[in-house]
Design a protein around this nucleic acid. Structure first.
Length: 551
RNA sequence: GGCCCCGUGGUCAAGCGGUUAAGACAUCGCCCUUUCACGGCGGAGACAUGGGUUCGAUUCCCGUCGGGGUCACCA
């Protein structure tokens, strides 16, 4: 009895690895092409950190004419949730991230290197496990979970490293005959890797973002095939990324410490190891302590949160790119209208330590992003958001032509207006442009410098009767307000007023403010000329009448 | 606790032996503007700490402190 016989006893009906090696040939890509993947477990909602990884992986693959694929790591059936894959696929799609290969829905996939769902790859893993056993590099372990737990307790008591290794690895030194006997006797077992490592030796490794790191060699006989016949993460990673031709494994840095294991696994099975890119997670300040954004405690950890808030996906992506490569900001300033796909992301420039999530900064990025949108796009996005989260707003937007005029105020020029950070801001920004909202809100007219009722009344009446003309261009429109101010005894120029503060009660700006407040109920609005232009004389008149009533 | 990684203004961060230690967000002041939002100018604000090495350390080495990660038949 030798290893081969043992392997056959354990996996009698499994294909030789040559079958798979042929079925999944090396990818024929041009020099320098990077193959990346996003490999989440469908265990809950999509996390912002996952989006970050996927974004980075998608970008570097695109930049090098490589391939980016989506693989689902569902080898732990206990933790799975319903529609987990759909949620991942849709979340990525919402942010404009399309994999070249991989799962496209709960059950469908595209690409030639599948299945892209690990639970469907059991036979493949078993073939490679068998291969390992044949080589004497893996073995069946008959220890029960209770026994393993007991070993751990002893180690703890003895103050030695916990784990299944060296002398603690009871089954490691069983003879082939003993193993076969136990199997034939029906004893339950799992498959463990037979680590050739020694803890007192160091390995050096170069991580693309973390740089050079040194670790003790792995000496743990980790399990590669679980009792349920599926592989553990470690083994699936090695087999899949080999077969799928991944060149760069981009993953969260919590995996950094398993690099010695993974490298050893790759080496022992005889595959070329990929490059590793361990990216720092996005953190949150929690009472002075940094911690990862938590699914349970932090609503902003879920990518759905941003959609709910009405923060455009483009903004979230730009913010994330900002964290990834801080020179993105400079690039954006120099290329304000360029598509972000044109930005060249550099993996080795990514931060080694985790960045604190900064909502204020995100919102600032978002303001800029939205200011670059066309009125049409602002309209469409706002409507899409409103239909889901704010019915009242959606109703307001029924008249598209009118809404487009509002969204067009101070937009499309070199210094576009930056007042919307998220779609949920919109209602408040535009509500006064809607008569039914305006007249039903019980507006309080809080006049400022000029607050005397008679004076306000005079300004309003004079203006609408003698100065307002719908056909005026902006310059003459404003000249007329100056004229009005002059006629009523206010300074028609601000400079004039500042030069002679005692001579005048107020200046043209204050007159404007009266008009603005009577018109909108607010002291601060976008350009008043455009607002008046959109409203038209009758509505302006009506607004003024309303204002006069409560004087 | 063992092992690994990290430590530049409030935040994100350039810098990698000699710099007046960039920039962005936030903050404050001024300017522009009929208001606001922009935009412009300026201010305040940082190399965790103690030892080395060096003519010279934010940059290199060691210790301390602080933060994070990891030690599963979870990924």
């Amino acid at each position: 009895m030798d290893y081969k016989d043992l392997a056959n006893l354990i996996f009698p009906d499994v294909k030789p690895i040559e079958y798979y090696e042929e079925k999944y040939p090396r990818r024929n890509l041009k020099e320098g092409a990077i193959v990346t993947r996003f490999a989440p477990s469908p265990t809950g909602f999509m996390h912002i950190g996952g989006l970050y990884q996927a974004l980075v992986a998608r970008k570097v693959a695109s930049q090098t004419d490589g391939v980016f694929f989506l693989r689902i790591e569902d080898t732990d059936q206990k933790r799975e949730i319903e529609n987990g894959i759909t949620d991942i696929v849709n979340s990525l799609k919402d942010f404009g991230i399309e994999p070249d290969e991989g799962m496209v829905s709960e059950t469908d996939e595209k690409g030639n290197y599948g299945p892209y769902k690990q639970s469907l790859r059991g036979d493949i893993y078993r073939s490679y496990a068998k291969y390992m056993i044949e080589m004497g590099k893996a073995y069946p372990c008959f220890c029960t979970p209770e026994e393993v737990e007991e070993i751990r307790k002893k180690q703890e008591a003895a103050k030695v490293r916990p784990g299944y290794y060296g002398v603690w690895a009871k089954c490691r030194n069983l003879t082939v005959e003993e193993m076969a006997e136990k199997i034939k006797a029906g004893e339950k077992y799992i498959i463990r890797f037979k680590s050739p490592g020694r803890e007192d030796r160091k390995i050096k490794h170069h991580d693309v973002v973390k740089g050079n790191v040194t670790f003790p060699e792995n000496d743990q006989d980790i399990v590669i095939i679980k009792a349920d016949g599926l592989p553990t993460y470690h083994f699936a990673h090695v087999v899949d990324d080999h077969l799928m031709g991944t060149t760069h494994v981009i993953r969260s840095d919590e995996w950094l410490s398993s690099v010695p294991l993974h490298l050893q696994l790759f080496h022992e099975i005889g595959f070329k190891a990929p490059k590793y890119v361990h990216i720092s997670p996005i953190m949150k300040n929690d009472n002075g302590n940094k911690r990862k954004l938590s699914k349970r405690k932090d609503p902003e950890a879920a990518v759905s949160y941003y959609a709910e808030q009405g923060i455009p996906g483009e903004a979230v992506k730009e913010y994330l790119l900002n964290i990834a490569n801080s020179n993105f900001e400079n690039w954006r300033r120099q290329n304000p209208t360029e598509d972000i796909d044109k930005f060249e992301l550099q993996l080795n420039k990514m931060s080694v330590s985790g960045a604190l999530f900064d909502m204020v900064k995100l919102l600032d990025v978002s303001k800029s992003v939205i200011s670059r949108f066309t009125a049409e796009k602002v309209y469409n996005e706002t409507l899409k958001w409103a239909e889901k989260y704010d019915k009242e707003l959606a109703d307001m937007l029924t008249d598209k032509e009118y809404a487009l005029k509002i969204f067009g105020i101070e937009r499309g020029n070199k210094k576009p207006r930056k007042d919307i950070a998220k779609w949920s801001d919109v209602k408040n920004e535009i509500s006064y442009m809607y008569d039914d909202k305006f007249y039903n809100q019980n507006v309080k007219y809080e006049y400022q410098k000029i607050s005397n009722s008679d004076k306000i009344k005079t300004i309003l009446e004079e203006y609408i009767n003698n100065y307002f003309d719908e056909n005026d261009d902006k310059q003459t429109w404003f000249n007329k307000i100056k004229e009005l101010a002059g006629k009523l005894g206010y300074a028609s120029e601000v400079k004039e007023f500042k030069a002679n503060p005692d001579k005048y009660e107020a200046h043209v700006g204050d007159v404007s403010t009266v008009l603005r407040i009577a018109l909108t109920g607010r002291a601060n609005t976008p350009d008043m000329y455009e607002i008046m232009e959109i409203m038209g004389k009758d509505r302006i008149k009506e607004r003024f009448e309303n204002a006069k009533k409560v004087l």
